[in-house]
């Protein structure tokens, strides 16, 4: 059942038990808060009242919180905003990054060195929050969704990881296509990319998660709360527990919801913020173990 090497002594019973206990504790430590939040979001008002708050043992289940959230209003809108920004942003970032990683993957090509230097130098010094804000504002991007996408569209780090991967593809593979007259775009699309599915998936996940989680850029650049992405809504209504009616600006409200949001609804917002990550993650996870992102950590 195990692949213990022949020279290793069998673990002692106490040792094995302790190890198992520790691992269980760690796993439960990660999963329990998520379980509790999900269960509370699916509980009836009575179950929440009976538990005196968060529900840990299922009693009455209902989808009421989700029905209310998606009946149109602040949360529905913010989910759509977050989804849109994530899809468009990831598409742009991934395209730009793949192209540049390939374009910079051949040392000795024209302007290769200064361009690479430009990319690498961004590791050492960030421009800082205030100048960033001034730039975004002078480009007229305040209160546009582009302010959530363009400033972080290319991460030098992702670009460099991808480039390193492309550089490991042997020249012979692409050379024959080049001799047959294929241009670089075609080589990238038909030969290099199919060989790089893993790294593309991982970098895509990094970008997508970044956009889905984007919070501070929205706080900084979006004054109009009708444009808020989900993370800002999560902070406002769950972390700070504000009432879901946003009176003065006349933003859409939850029908029949004038009190501070009930716990179930708050937890449902948390689940909605969590769910896409939970869904996409298992499909990309297997690439982590293949060493694709070892480089990703060392930065």
């Amino acid at each position: 059942m195990t692949t213990l090497p022949p020279w290793a002594e069998r673990p002692s019973r106490v040792g094995a038990l302790l190890k198992g206990l520790l691992l269980t504790l760690i796993t439960v430590g990660v999963l329990f808060p998520i379980y509790m939040v999900a269960l509370t979001s699916l509980s009836t008002q009575e179950a929440v009242t009976e538990a005196g708050g968060l529900v840990t043992v299922p009693s009455g289940l209902s989808f009421a919180a989700y029905q209310e959230l998606f009946a149109g209003g602040v949360v529905t809108r913010s989910v759509l905003v977050s989804l849109g920004v994530t899809l468009v942003g990831t598409a742009i970032s991934l395209t730009v990054t793949v192209l540049a990683a390939y374009g910079l993957s051949r040392p000795g090509s024209l302007l290769h060195r200064p361009m690479l230097f430009l990319v690498l130098l961004t590791f050492l010094f960030g421009p800082g929050m205030i100048p960033n804000y001034l730039l975004v504002s002078s480009l007229g991007l305040i209160d546009t969704y582009w302010s959530l996408i363009l400033p972080g569209a290319v991460t030098a780090f992702n670009l460099v990881v991808m480039r390193a991967f492309f550089m490991n593809i042997p020249d012979e593979v692409t050379d024959s296509a080049r001799i047959d007259g294929a241009n670089e775009f075609r080589i990238l699309r038909t030969i290099v990319l199919p060989m790089s599915k893993g790294v593309t998936a991982v970098i895509g996940l990094f970008y997508a998660v970044g956009y889905w989680n984007s919070f501070f850029n929205a706080v900084l650049y979006l004054n109009d709360n009708a444009k808020w992405p989900l993370q800002v809504v999560l902070r406002q209504y769950v972390l700070q527990g504000q009432s879901l009616i946003v009176g003065q600006s006349g933003v859409g409200t939850l029908p029949g919801q004038s009190l501070p949001p009930s716990l179930a609804i708050q937890m449902a917002i948390v689940v909605v913020a969590l769910l896409p990550v939970l869904f996409v993650y298992p499909f990309v996870q297997r690439h982590f173990t293949k060493g694709v992102i070892i480089g990703a950590i060392k930065g």
Binding site: A100, G103, L104, L150, F185
Partner: peptide, 13 residues
Amino acid sequence: QLLLMALPAIGLL
């Protein structure tokens, strides 16, 4: 062609 490919990222940076 390589130059053209790198251009959008360099521009954004």
